[in-house]
């Protein structure tokens, strides 16, 4: 049998396979480049970047949970100028899709950051309107249609780059937010960001995270992510990128059957840095075994009862 076609096209951007490293778990790629060539990945969504550098939250910033982690990094990043001058040129030498992930405390911040990226050769911009770990901005935008709408609108007019809006699951109805950003010109949506959670040390009676609360990710959130991807892909006409607790090839297939056109993997990389590479091989084997020629043929092919 011929080799199955793993490539996907998301709003005009060609990915050699549907596996993207999730923002915040992969830095700007350089650390994992020591283990395997970044070219093996479909794409990399870079660490969330803001207009000005940010120091992030006071540690501890991570806590383990059953089948997952809570984090509250708080968008520590070198700022968009350093991203453009230092990290982006290095990444663009590599044959993989480079996605800038941007966040901001105000609509103007988002627009200015996107505008700076408009002149670069970044392939795509992911709008982080869903970070639960910053006091200003972040999920403030993503929890209301008005906020999501305002940020998407401002960024849309600031750049011609394809825009993917990353949605928070911490809302009553995620499809409403998805429809709002679609209406404002988002080219794709990615979901889910982390679920807001908390752990308390029973000896000290202090929250484990210094920020008190943080975002839950890892296998624990996978079923929630599958459900939301399914709901959103039925509600909008733009591509959905599935994120949340994906650990292996089987999870990728499941997420794509639910309606994801591509996926992002994050927390699994902490457990096994090779997880995305192994998952790509597993997806390829699944397609061969099931005589499926193109990965894109399975998108949304779940048959609901």
């Amino acid at each position: 049998m011929i080799k199955p076609d793993l490539s996907v096209n998301i709003c005009g951007v060609e990915f050699k396979n549907p596996v993207i490293a999730a923002s915040g778990t992969y830095g700007f790629g350089e650390e994992y480049d020591e283990l395997y060539p970044l070219e093996k990945l479909g794409g990399i969504s870079c660490k969330g970047t803001t207009l000005n550098p940010k120091d992030g939250n006071i540690p501890p910033r991570i806590a383990e949970t059953p089948s997952g982690i809570l984090n509250s990094v708080g968008l520590q990043n070198p700022g968009v100028d350093k991203f453009i001058s230092y990290h982006l040129p290095r990444l663009k030498k590599r044959d993989t899709v480079v996605i800038a992930n941007i966040a901001g405390a105000s609509v103007e911040d988002y627009a200015l950051t996107a505008q700076k990226l408009d002149d670069t050769d970044v392939d795509m911009i992911e709008l982080n309107i869903s970070c639960p770990n910053v006091k200003q901005g972040g999920a403030t935008w993503g929890v209301s249609c008005a906020g999501a709408y305002a940020v998407t609108k401002a960024v849309r007019s600031a750049t011609k780059k394809p825009i993917m809006v990353k949605l928070t699951p911490n809302v009553t109805d995620i499809t409403e937010i998805a429809k709002a950003v679609e209406a404002e010109g988002a080219d794709a949506v990615s979901l889910i960001n982390t679920l807001l959670g908390m752990r308390i040390d029973i000896k000290t009676r202090r929250p484990v995270l210094h920020n008190n609360v943080g975002g839950l990710s890892g296998p624990a959130v996978f079923p929630v992510a599958v459900r939301m991807v399914w709901q959103v892909s039925n509600a909008v006409n733009i591509p959905v990128i599935g994120i949340g607790g994906i650990s292996d090839g089987a999870d990728i297939i499941e997420m794509m059957l639910a309606g994801a056109s591509a996926v992002q993997m994050g927390t699994a990389i902490f457990t096994d840095p090779y997880a995305p590479i192994k998952a790509i091989e597993q997806v390829e084997r699944y397609l061969s075994d099931n005589r499926i020629e193109k990965i894109s043929d399975i998108v949304g092919q779940v048959e609901p009862w």
Partner: peptide, 9 residues
């Protein structure tokens, strides 16, 4: 988190 410098935890 990661131990290799990627996640800034």
């Amino acid at each position: 988190g990661c131990g290799v410098g990627a996640c800034v935890v």
